[in-house]
Design a protein around this nucleic acid. Structure first.
Lengths: 187, 187
DNA sequence: CCGGTGATGACAGTTGCTGTCATCACTACT
DNA sequence: AGTAGTGATGACAGCAACTGTCATCACCGG
């Protein structure tokens, strides 16, 4: 072979490594590429921009979310459907993945540009979930409301799951946060 | 005077104009600056980056949100507090502002980079509201949950307010959306 | 009249990102 | 075997976003 396979994965690993040590802005796309024996041009063939190297592959996560959604019973309320989606999504983050997620998140938390991208991905997730709910017959604005609430619950649960010393599974935390959301509406 | 006053406002107006006609990416920061008789360097002295020219000044909006929050009765539930904040925020968008908001939003809706920035600002709003709720004695994750829900409700209401043919005031729409959120938790 | 201040211009430089063409292993078809 | 693709890459030029630095010049207070 002329080139090693798995260029994309090598670039992602190298990027995370460099971002964690030197910082995001202090790391050049050319450096990332060269650190795995590729050129900058090739980096941009795999990722649409510098930030995307940390977010590529989130489609699987979205599919998990949507998968749980389709598995929900037909007569379930919107929030119950979201609960199913949450369970399914949480399954994509087993405890083994916690250290990696922590490292990744610490990089994102240090850089506003990366936070923007993360929030954008979350917003995209909410849009997809809302569309799926509408297909199930949920009307507006309830569909969007339920979808965004689901994304919010997941976000809060994930942040807690990442915290140092946290031992519960993501699914457990998410279900508790969802319970808190229910309480919010009827004090 | 050597230079005309109000450089920042002139830049913002010119930028919106150009973005609306040529598109965001097809407009150069140098073009914006030159169109009001300034240089590119001066543009970046007023705005931290190209996108920010559309978002500068949102602090007032955030202050409105937080102001309504402080005006809420001391024994109000988190969601009632958020309702107050929503009312106060809606007051910053009187009906006269609808055409301008529509134009601005149409520019943002056409560009992912601008959507990212908008979502980032919303997230910042939610963080500030959550902090204010915590100061009021609301615990986690309820504070963040209520804050993000408030931001979501505002976002949905604003999108509806902007819609062609919509006649209701933003405050009216927001209160209806908030009512839908309450319904979500008890089917 | 004079020194400080503040908004600006001029200019060079870095970096993210794109367009374009060449290269070279591998594959499939003849 | 030969030959024509195909796909991932390198090489290189170029644009636009953004930054650092120094000079300029109206204005303001003493």
């Amino acid at each position: 072979m002329r080139w090693e396979p798995g260029a994309r994965e090598r670039l992602q690993a190298a990027a995370l490594e460099l971002f964690a040590t030197r910082g995001f802005e202090q790391t050049t796309t050319a450096e990332i590429a060269q650190s795995v024996g590729l050129t900058e041009r090739t980096f941009f063939r795999h990722f649409s921009d510098k930030r995307e190297v940390l977010f590529y592959g989130q489609d699987q996560f979205l599919q998990a979310f949507l998968g749980g959604l389709h598995a929900a019973p037909p007569n379930a309320s919107p929030l119950e459907v979201v609960a199913c989606a949450l369970d399914s999504a949480a399954a994509f983050f087993p405890d083994e993945r916690r250290p990696y997620s922590r490292m990744r998140q610490s990089v994102i938390d240090k850089n506003p540009a990366l936070q923007e991208r993360e929030q954008h991905k979350f917003a995209g997730l909410a849009v997809a979930v809302a569309e799926a709910l509408r297909v199930r017959g949920v009307g507006e604005p309830t569909a969007t409301l339920a979808a965004e609430s689901g994304a919010t619950v997941f976000g809060i649960a994930f942040a807690q799951w990442i915290r140092e010393g946290e031992e519960r599974s993501l699914a457990d935390i998410a279900s508790q946060v969802l319970h808190e959301l229910r309480n919010l509406a009827r004090p």
